[in-house]
């Protein structure tokens, strides 16, 4: 093959086509692009098509339109329970992650001896989240006097609580599930700390000179200036909590995932992902599970846009106050 050399445009160094910046850029991002198409876009489309279909045991697939969605949203008492669980869980856990994370960051946002030790101690547990800590907290919230939680309550004279296996008060399991997030607030704390460090000290100084007290300082300086970080953290916390999986699975698991009920007593520990897992991979109803996944995704989008909508009003308010 002969290479035909065309005269390059005047004033520009002649380059072969694959040497061009644009082409090279695409070459470098091509692994991601390829992965995105193969493991992102294609499965997403396939999952959507699956969610519109129903497959029986012989894998013959039938198109059923929005039947799966309709069944989930109107005619599935388990999903109704789970949606309720998720609403309580996500709100409760996000309040803990954000409130506690922010409070801890404010406490640590001053240089004092030992600051580093506290920061590390609070941050490290959030790195350990997973099935191991899920089983740990399952034992912590064990009923009777064995569990640490009940030992702790016993010190104050409160009776042992049957947290996880309570058929009369199944919501207690959900409370335990939410409380576990106290141990994992370190991640959001760290981001808040970084955000606090990004606020120029001059603002605090100016407020101090104007005679602002600690509360005013927090309300009028810290909160407005930190609001982008708060919004970011809230969205990340929401996404994370909606996808909670290991802890509820461990809490509900009574030896053997497939034999026990992975959703807990009266489905009190059912979450979107555990239910999806049960439907899709225990009962092999992929169409139903796909529809569940999209409903979960839709819930994520709705909550995220709610936060953003709220934030727009809030930050605008903060802006007008600052000026």
């Amino acid at each position: 093959m002969t290479m035909v050399l065309k005269p390059g445009r005047p004033g520009r160094p002649r380059r072969r086509w694959w040497r061009r910046e644009g082409v090279q850029g695409y070459v470098y991002i091509s692994p991601w692009l390829l992965g995105f198409l193969m493991f992102g876009v294609a499965p997403l489309i396939a999952a959507f098509l699956t969610s519109l279909s129903k497959a029986n045991v012989f894998r013959t697939i039938r198109f059923v339109g929005l039947d799966n969605y309709q069944k989930i949203l109107t005619d599935d008492p388990v999903f109704a329970t789970i949606a309720g669980n998720m609403l309580i869980y996500v709100i409760g856990s996000t309040i803990i992650s954000i409130g506690l994370g922010l409070a801890l960051a404010l406490l640590l946002h001053r240089d004092f001896r030992g600051n580093h030790v506290f920061r590390t101690l609070i941050y490290v547990p959030s790195l350990l989240v997973g099935i191991a800590t899920a089983y740990l907290f399952k034992q912590v919230f064990q009923g009777g006097e064995v569990g640490l939680a009940n030992m702790f309550l016993g010190v104050f004279g409160a009776g042992p609580v049957n947290w996880l296996g309570n058929s009369e008060q199944p919501w207690l399991a959900l409370v335990a599930l939410i409380l576990v997030n106290v141990w994992f607030a370190g991640g959001t704390m760290l981001i808040f700390l970084a955000g606090l460090k990004g606020i120029p000290p001059a603002y605090f100084e100016a407020a101090r000179v104007d005679g602002a007290g600690p509360w005013q300082m927090f309300r009028r300086v810290t909160l407005p200036l930190l609001s982008p970080v708060i919004v970011f953290n809230t969205i990340m916390a929401l996404i994370g909590h909606i996808q909670v999986f290991e802890t509820p699975l461990a809490f509900a698991n009574n030896g053997g995932i497939s034999t026990g009920n992975p959703l807990g007593y009266e489905n009190s520990l059912g979450t979107f992902v555990t239910y999806l897992y049960v439907k899709g991979f225990v009962y092999q109803d992929m169409g139903y599970a796909s529809a569940l996944a999209f409903i979960m995704f839709a819930a994520t989008l709705v909550l995220t846009s709610l936060v953003l909508w709220f934030a727009r009003r809030f930050t605008a308010y903060g802006d007008s106050e600052r000026n």
Partner: peptide, 28 residues
Amino acid sequence: RFRFPGRNALFMVVLATMMLPGQVMTIS
């Protein structure tokens, strides 16, 4: 390090994929 058409849009897509629940893709 490279300027190419659609770079910023594609990078936004990278960020957006972090929001996608992985379970959606897992099934297919």
